[in-house]
Design a protein around this nucleic acid. Structure first.
Length: 307
DNA sequence: CGCCTTTGACCTGCGC
DNA sequence: GCGCAGGTCAAAGGCG
C-alpha cells in the first residue's frame, strides 16, 4: 500500500501572489504602504499557523498509518493461526454438536466449512461441498425483528422459516445485484441472545460490491445505521474511484470482535473512529481530495483578500 | 411497472 | 417407507 500514498503535506511556504512585481510606491502613499505591510504580516502569520497545522496533521496521519500497519500484521498472524486450526477441526465434525456459539461474540469465520453454530451445513453434504461458507454475528437491537443485515450487497428475500431449535424465524436471501450471482445468505437471531443476528453466507460473489451509498439509496430496506452491521470479508472490491469507508477490512472486523468482548461503549466508539480514519487515510482518493480542498481553500482566501 | 416481502405449499435429505 | 425438518418456489400483495 505504501506505493499508493499521496503526499498530503502542503507546501504552505508558497508565495500567495507569485507573479506580482513590487512597484515603487510614491512617498505620499507611505501610509497606504504601511497598511499593506501590516496586511502582509497578518497573512504571513496565518500561513505560519496553517503550516503548523499541516505539520500536526501529517504527524497524525503517520501515527494512524503505523497503527493500521500493526493491526494488519496482527490480523495476518491471527488468520494464519486460524487456518491451521480449521484444518484440524473440520475433520472431526460429523456427528458432533456445534461447539461454538456466536451468542457472546461478534465476528466471522470466513471461507470455512466448519462454520460455527450452523449445524445444517454439517448435516448436508451438498452444502458442505460448496466453495465457501462463512458466518457473521452482528449485534442489533433486540426489538429489531427485520432480520435485515446491511453488508454492502443487495439481497432479495426468498423465504422465511421457523426452525426447530430457535424460536425466531430464519430468513433466506439471494444476492440480487447480479442475476447470475450464486451467493445466498441465511439470517437468524441467536437463540440465546436475541440481540445478535447470525448470518451465514454461501458462495462467493461474481461481481463487484455495490457501494454503500448505492445500497442505501436503492434498497427498500429499513433506514438503519450503516455501521450497524459488520460484513464479512468481501471477495470483490469496489472498482469505482470513490472515497469509501472500507469497513470490509479484516482488521476492522477483528477489532470490532475484540471490542465487543473486552471494551465498553466509549472504547468501541473510539475504535470505530480510529478504524474509519485509518480507512480514509488509506484511500489515495481521499488524501488527494483533502489536499485539493485545503489548497483550494487557501487560494480562495488569498483571492478574497486580494480583492 | 418493476422490485420487493410475505407466506403457504412443495421439494429434498436424513434418521429411524 | 415414513415422518421430520430445512430449503426453495411462486403467487399475492405492497411500495415507490
Amino acid at each position: 500500500m505504501d506505493s499508493n500514498w499521496v503526499d498530503t503535506s502542503l507546501d504552505l511556504n508558497l508565495n500567495p501572489f507569485p507573479g506580482k512585481p513590487k512597484k515603487t510606491e510614491p512617498v505620499e502613499d507611505l501610509v497606504v504602504l504601511q497598511g499593506k505591510e501590516l496586511q502582509m504580516d497578518a497573512l504571513m502569520e496565518e500561513f505560519n499557523q496553517l503550516r503548523a497545522e499541516n505539520r500536526k496533521l501529517t504527524e497524525m496521519l503517520t501515527i494512524v498509518c503505523e497503527n493500521y500497519t500493526s493491526l494488519q500484521n496482527q490480523f495476518m498472524e491471527l488468520k494464519n493461526k486460524n487456518s491451521e486450526n480449521e484444518v484440524t477441526t473440520s475433520r472431526k465434525r460429523k456427528g458432533e454438536a456445534a461447539p461454538d456459539d456466536c451468542a457472546n461474540m461478534i465476528g466471522f469465520s470466513g471461507r470455512s466449512e466448519s462454520s460455527s453454530s450452523d449445524e445444517e451445513s454439517i448435516k448436508r453434504p451438498k452444502e458442505s461441498s460448496k466453495s465457501s461458507i462463512s458466518t457473521v454475528c452482528v449485534r442489533t437491537s433486540p426489538s429489531d425483528t427485520s432480520l435485515i443485515l446491511r453488508d454492502g450487497y443487495q439481497w432479495r428475500k426468498y423465504g422465511q422459516k421457523v426452525t426447530r431449535d430457535n424460536p425466531s424465524p430464519r430468513a433466506y436471501f439471494k444476492c440480487s445485484y447480479a442475476p447470475s450471482c450464486p451467493v445466498k445468505k441465511k439470517v437468524q437471531k441467536s437463540a440465546e441472545d436475541p440481540s445478535i443476528l447470525v448470518a451465514t453466507y454461501e458462495g462467493e460473489h461474481n461481481h463487484a460490491c455495490p457501494s454503500q451509498a448505492e445500497v442505501s439509496l436503492s434498497s427498500t430496506q429499513t433506514a438503519a445505521n450503516p455501521c450497524r452491521s459488520v460484513p464479512i470479508s468481501a471477495p470483490v472490491k469496489p472498482s469505482a474511484p470513490s472515497v469509501t469507508l472500507d469497513l470490509l477490512q479484516p482488521s476492522f472486523i477483528k477489532d470490532v470482535k475484540k471490542s465487543s468482548e473486552e471494551m465498553d461503549s466509549a472504547d468501541i466508539q473510539k475504535l470505530l473512529v480510529h478504524q474509519m480514519a485509518a480507512s480514509l487515510v488509506r484511500d489515495p482518493n481521499f488524501t488527494a481530495a483533502l489536499a485539493s480542498a485545503i489548497s483550494g481553500g487557501v487560494l480562495e482566501q488569498s483571492r478574497i483578500e486580494k480583492c
